[in-house]
Design a protein around this nucleic acid. Structure first.
Length: 787
DNA sequence: GCGGACTGCTTACCT
DNA sequence: ACAGGTAAGCAGTCCGCG
């Protein structure tokens, strides 16, 4: 095969030929076509004996198997994937218990792995948006005409078309889009792209060719909204971001907005074409500006180059898969195929244990310090050399069943820590008398001397991250070098954090319950070990712990560093002693992260307090996790009063004053006229209405709205979430709820007080003032007391 | 018909 | 279309209750 001299912009296949796009020296798109690409998968050489000669022969005769080759470890089987018997053949192999390797790879992926290609970094990008005829009203993909489109590229070059002949309009869109490598839209995976596709099908335009390939197929697509949702949905409240409409995102990040218009799109099209043009172009300009502001695509491109992926398949699982396949390939290793539907179901039957969540010593504390394990799961993957190749499979099942025998129906968190330690010690003597392995807390064993692909990769990623961080500090903020280093640091971080995820993902080729559980359960053990050591060394009791965090009460600042260094030293000593870890390693680091001057520890995953220090920087803010003030289904009134109450508590207000305050709030709820906004409950739909087994208030209301065609049903797709239903409880006993717009002024005050307002407060109050009988305030308010 | 005890479903969160 | 753990509230069911 002649090696491609140019950098690859994009590649795809039609199950027969592979098309590789690059740009020539003049910058023109060119296609390199590998006709009848010889695709293959592999099996292990020891599985060869499981095959029956006559059957293989018949597959050869009918042209399915084209040829085969072997080395010491693997047999490559070259096949015609278009052959009707292809899937039969795979089924036959599975029935013979032959493990298929890399049989799920597309022709493109196979070609990219086997040819040492360089990915093009300088991609030409354009932002696009379409406007469609909205005369009818409801959105239905492809039903009505496309009225206009706008495109702007990264240099600011702008295109717009609104000609009446839709076929010509689409042609011009296609021609402009094809000047670029990637087109970027907003919610375009759900709207613009399928819409254009559907309308092009009306005129058969999707099959127009240029240089021998369909133009439509040679343009990559990115939905900027999906990416920003992934990046920012966890921190929406911090950003003050209400949602992911283009207008809202532009408001928060750009302090800009879409063009306002009162007319419908079709009215603008007919009566005010200039405004439509302005509107359409403004949208793509917002996309361009958003990207400039956040370097989103720049980062994505970096990630693609790094892992060997294309922009239009930008999922963490896919990126990591490409990366690991490449790394394995460099070592001459071939990996098993992704599970089929049956294998996936099998995988799902196993429940992977997660992180350790200690039942908190609920209470009101001062000087609470939070410590965090730095990159806990990556640390474990590296320290224990966890991975497929290092895993000692011969004893895996027996050692696992020993673990479950030991658990004896108990939950892991119920196990006495000393007992667990003792069990592991006995097991280690039994399974690893020669000390050749690392033992995980799940009683699985990993060979010491051959570094696994996943472990080596994770170590490499952590090392890279350190280097990029150092590089960042070497350069000034605002320079290209700084931006690059920061981008790469983020890329590496995202990948590192996802390595554990793919070992527990039932659909991934890296799924392995022994491995996934070894990681999480060792994490549980380390967390408990740290508490154990802290108790022994300093007689400090851990107040709370969740996965990789540990909460301790330490008043003196000087003591914090002592605790930190002592515990880290002891942790590393203990893992060497208990699990046979490499003595030179000094991996585990329980970092000091933040301090609460005061902390109300309410329950698991629910706490709120006065944050006074974080990452070495002084702070002065109320910080909470899981409590009602940050939950989106909390009514506004409660949100406000809750924070007010917390402020009173944190300010050492006398309990009698607080009791009076509670009573006053109750009086207000029962007697004052409330703003609808204050008592509106907002709940989001998560799936199509028909799929609900249990129909709570918001679902019943949504059902009616759906029947009236006021809302669209929820689509069961990634990143497309359902409508938020705003409603008010009129009478809780009879389950009477109304939409906020239909509110008549009648609402169930007793219900609101008891459930929506007082309950969250009571949970805090009974933790802070356990001696007070707060139930008293729950009872119905008597407007006219006898006294 | 209504409530308590219980289970399962649903939402939204934490790491 | 990378994971599991958890609280809280409601729906639905069973059952008792002259």
């Amino acid at each position: 095969m002649n090696k491609l001299k140019h950098k690859v912009v994009y590649a795809w296949d039609n199950k027969q030929d592979v098309f590789v796009m690059y740009r020539d020296d003049a910058g023109k798109k060119k296609i390199h076509c590998i006709e009848n690409f010889l695709w293959y998968f592999l099996i292990k050489i020891e599985d060869l004996s499981k095959l029956q000669n006559d059957i293989i022969k018949s597959y050869k005769q009918n042209g399915l198997i084209l040829k085969s080759s072997r080395d010491d470890t693997y047999v490559k089987i070259y096949c015609d994937r278009m052959n009707a018997g292809f899937y039969d053949f795979l089924e036959y192999l599975k029935k013979q218990k032959v493990e298929l390797l890399e049989a799920d790879l597309s022709l493109t992926k196979r070609w990219l792995l086997d040819n040492d290609v360089v990915f093009e970094e300088d991609l030409k990008i354009a932002f696009f948006d379409i406007e469609t005829d909205d005369t009818i009203g409801n959105i239905e993909i492809g039903r009505d005409k496309i009225l206009s489109w706008a495109i702007v590229d990264t240099t600011g070059k702008t295109y717009y078309d609104s000609k009446e002949d839709e076929k010509e309009l689409l042609k011009s869109f296609l021609n402009v889009a094809d000047k670029y490598d990637v087109i970027v839209g907003w919610n375009s995976a759900q709207f613009d792209l399928p819409y254009v596709k559907a309308r092009m099908d009306v005129y058969g335009l999707r099959w127009i060719k240029k240089d021998g390939v369909e133009i439509w197929n040679r343009i990559q697509h990115v939905d900027l909204m999906s990416r920003l949702i992934k990046l920012f949905s966890p921190i929406m409240s911090i950003l003050g971001l209400q949602g992911f409409s283009l207008n809202e995102v532009a408001r928060v990040f750009l302090k800009s907005s879409k063009i306002e218009h009162k007319e419908k799109i079709h009215e603008m099209y007919e009566n005010n074409p200039e405004l439509l043009k302005e509107y359409n172009i403004q949208d793509v300009k917002l996309l361009k500006e958003l990207n400039e502001k956040m370097s989103t695509l720049f980062l994505m491109i970096k990630e693609c180059i790094w892992t060997g992926s294309f922009m239009n398949k930008f999922y963490v699982g896919e990126l990591l898969d490409n990366y690991i396949l490449r790394e394995a390939d460099k070592r001459g290793l071939h990996l098993r195929s992704r599970p089929d539907k049956i294998g996936e179901e099998e995988n799902r039957k196993n429940f992977i244990t997660g992180g350790y969540v200690q039942t908190p010593l609920s209470g009101y504390y001062s000087d609470v310090r939070v410590f965090d394990f730095k990159s806990l799961y990556p640390t474990i993957i590296i320290g224990w050399n966890i991975g497929e190749e290092s895993h000692v499979k011969e004893i895996a099942k027996e050692a696992e069943s020993e673990f479950y025998k030991f658990l004896n129906e108990r939950k892991i968190e119920e196990i006495d820590f000393e007992e667990w330690t003792l069990f592991l010690r006995v097991q280690r003597r039994k399974f690893d008398p020669d000390n050749k392995y690392y033992q995980s807390a799940y009683n699985q064993f990993f060979i010491k001397d051959v570094i696994s692909v996943v472990s080596g990769l994770t170590a490499n990623l952590l090392k890279q991250r350190k280097e990029f961080k150092a590089l960042m500090h070497k350069h000034k903020e605002g320079t290209t070098e700084f931006a690059n280093a920061r981008a790469m640091q983020e890329v590496v971080k995202e990948l590192t954090n996802s390595v554990y995820g793919i070992t527990a993902d039932a659909t991934s080729r890296y799924y392995n319950r022994y491995i996934a559980k070894s990681i999480t359960i060792t994490g549980q053990y380390l967390n408990r070990l740290s508490s154990d050591l802290i108790k022994k060394e300093f007689d400090l009791t851990t107040l709370y712990a969740d996965t990789d965090s540990v909460f301790l009460q330490i008043s003196e600042d000087e003591k914090v560093e002592v605790v930190h260094s002592t515990i880290n030293r002891r942790l590393n000593e203990e893992v060497i002693e208990r699990f046979g870890l490499n003595p030179s390693e000094d991996l585990i680091d329980l970092e000091y992260e933040k301090k609460y001057g005061r902390l109300i520890l309410a329950d698991k995953k629910r706490y709120i307090g006065h944050l006074v220090e974080s990452d070495g920087k002084p702070m002065d803010t109320i910080h909470s996790r899981g409590t009602e003030n940050i939950k989106k289904d909390t009514i506004e009134y409660t949100r406000r009063k809750f924070i007010e109450l917390v402020s009173l508590i944190l300010a050492d207000t006398d309990v009698e004053v607080i009791k009076k305050w509670v009573k006053d709030v109750q009086t207000e709820v029962y007697n004052e006229k409330m703003d609808v906004k204050d008592i509106t409950i907002i709940k989001r739909l998560s799936k199509p209405i028909a799929e609900y087994k249990s129909k709570s208030g918001h679902v019943r209301l949504a059902e009616i709205m759906l029947n009236n065609k006021e809302i669209m049903d929820t689509v069961k797709k990634k990143h497309s979430w359902g409508e938020r239903i705003h409603y008010i409880v009129v009478d809780s006993k009879s389950k009477n709820v109304v939409l906020d717009r239909d509110f008549t002024g009648v609402w169930d005050k007793a219900y609101y007080w008891k459930v929506q307002i007082f309950a969250p407060m009571k949970r805090l109050l009974s933790v802070v003032y356990p001696e007070v009988k707060w139930d008293y305030y729950e009872v119905e308010y008597m407007q006219n007391t006898l006294f």
